[in-house]
Design a protein around this nucleic acid. Structure first.
Lengths: 368, 368
DNA sequence: TTGTATGCGTTATCAC
DNA sequence: GTGATAACGCATACAA
């Protein structure tokens, strides 16, 4: 049976050590021979507060150092509403067993930028393995321990996020997201990137192109399509209704025959969107191979993103890379701004164009 | 006597809303017509505390729900004298750009186990990019913000660790480590694992074996050698002085001639230790190839660990895998125990034997 | 069974 | 310059 802890220290003894065992400002004060408030002032290093004598200052600093004093984040947050901690919350495990699905590249940027700005990171072990506060209705509540929080993953519950946002708690979502309203996010500029890819193909001489995409309404998908169409428009191909091929199962529907039909119609370049599964790109590559088409001689291919792992060994696709690390950094920048009460920073991060080896000039008319 | 003006709410009105604008227990209490303490009790839903009438219970729950009450984690942790935070400190960036060198597999286990136990993680951006508390002499001081801390990487400064340990701050190092004294660690059981590999080779019929190792005094190296020797001992080969080949540069010193010499002497199996560089295994494979030896027909090979990235494509080596994920989990288990004031848990984690394809029965005497 | 009184460690505001 | 002292929001021993 555990000894029922005494209700704090009965007497007014100078508190040898708090419940936590960790030294507190009171002890630093005692050791330095000053008051606790003075310690707080010295450690806060305020510009405008009461000036403190250099001597006192040193005494306090020395005492704090020798005791290994570190402010309690909870108390700090409670009293001052800030503790220089930024939260990171993901709705799947932050470190999934399969590295491929991981947020790793983002975290590289997150860590770097946070360090740069003097923030430490709290990784909220979210709904991952069913631990901490898995399905609890206020699973997200814990993030309020930090000054603000970054959210990763698609499955963030709207209701809880809405609550945080409504309360004015600084929140940034990694990846574009329209709900709840008012949620801040940072994301890749797929529109510009897709447009640039089309522009590249056009500069090689291509005019008629087809975009292969899955049946998905995610912003990442619609943005790519938008950019693709803008790119076509820019080269005077904006009025071609068949320029977008949309299928719930491209690997089934994108047959070699269909491909040959397009080619016969004068299409010379094909663009695939990137998705989790990579189905569009896989379907495209397979159809090209099955149809015996030589790429990039007979047709050019481009991928709006990176290839899935199983196709990573093939020729480097023309397209763009998603700047995951920079996205992570941008998210932290925005979060830091919100925490400081400033305006949100620019949400869009530019993608990096990748020339690749799957595109070239279109075959001269009459070839093949 | 003049009434000292209150800082926050001037009157003693029942606090319509705190700084945060979010409802507090006091308001829930007011709405439910009970005291704040009762609200706390109801919401805590304790098993053993004072029982509360179902009616009150419902009133409180209803009030809390209608107000959208969400507990403040900072206040909660402050009052409970625990912040349920475990630190993770690495001396290189926790998320290095090159994923290969990363702590990723460990973090998988760390996250999982921490979540399981209701802890969140604080990532201290150690000496990484020069952020938070970069090269500061007390860079490690920050970790005291957590309830305990996990250290990754070889370069933990002994002095500062000693200080933390001396202060009774719960610290666990990932990887065996003898200094400072009293430091807790978890590590892979290389001794048993190496012994098991030798046992496997022996069971195939091998008797004379040679261990190729680098000139390194790290515990991970000496443990492997120890296990290797124990394994030999177990099959009556304990008195062979030439069983360990040690070189500062195995890729230079392990020549095909030397290999043939060993074979001529009756050695039928070769074991390489795993190191950062993978030099021992690389040297061994190259010498075998250069000498035109067929593995596993003419000689068996084993690797005490995993192959370096550049040799990952070769045949799977007989040997063992380091259970990195389980190591991470074990580290958290131990840290949690220390935080709870309990005894440290078992530091050794078993490796996983890997049959592989580089070993088989020794050639019959007289073959080749 | 419920209410009262305190304390958790910090910050911030005042008098001295 | 320095030291009381009052919150911050919640938990809990103890009285009622």
């Amino acid at each position: 049976m555990e000894e029922p802890r005494k209700r704090a220290r009965p007497g007014r003894a100078p508190a040898p050590a708090g419940r936590t065992g960790r030294p507190r400002q009171a002890e630093v004060a005692r050791l330095a021979g000053v008051s606790q408030a003075t310690v707080s002032l010295v450690l806060a290093d305020k510009r405008q507060g009461p000036a403190i004598s250099e001597e006192t200052r040193q005494k306090v600093l020395e005492a704090a150092r020798s005791l290994g004093y570190v402010p309690d984040p909870a108390a700090r947050r409670l009293a001052a509403a800030r503790n220089d901690l930024l939260g990171v919350f993901s709705f799947t495990a932050t470190f999934p067993t399969d590295v491929r699905h991981s947020y790793y590249p983002f975290l590289v940027g997150v860590e770097r930028e946070a360090a740069e700005r003097g923030y430490d990171l709290v990784l909220f072990t979210g709904s991952s393995t069913g631990g901490a506060g898995a399905g609890a209705p206020d699973a997200l509540g814990r993030v309020r321990l930090a000054d603000g929080c970054l959210f990763l993953g698609r499955h963030a519950p709207v209701q809880e996020l809405r609550r945080l946002v409504a309360d004015g708690f600084p929140v940034v979502h990694l990846g574009r997201r329209d709900e709840p309203e008012g949620l801040h996010w940072v994301g890749a500029d797929y529109v510009s990137a897709a447009r640039e890819v089309v522009g590249h193909l056009a500069s090689l001489g291509h005019r008629r192109m087809v975009l292969v995409r899955e049946d998905d309404e995610a912003p990442a998908s619609t943005d790519r399509e938008l950019g693709f169409l803008q790119g076509l428009e820019a080269v005077g191909q904006g009025d071609n209704p068949g320029a977008v091929f949309r299928s719930a199962d491209p690997e089934r529907d994108l047959t070699p025959e269909r491909l040959r039909g397009w080619l016969a119609d004068g299409v010379t370049a094909f663009v695939a969107e990137e998705t989790d599964t990579g189905a569009a790109w896989r379907a495209l590559r397979r159809a090209v191979a099955d149809a015996g088409i030589d790429c990039p001689r007979d047709a050019s291919l481009a991928l709006l993103g990176s290839p899935p792992a199983d196709l990573a060994d093939g020729p480097e696709p023309t397209g763009f890379d998603i700047p995951r690390t920079r996205l992570g950094a941008a998210a932290v920048r925005m979060l830091a701004a919100l925490v400081a009460g400033e305006e949100a920073t620019e949400p869009l991060v530019a993608c990096t164009f990748r020339p690749g080896a799957t595109s070239g000039p279109p075959p001269a008319a009459g070839d093949h």
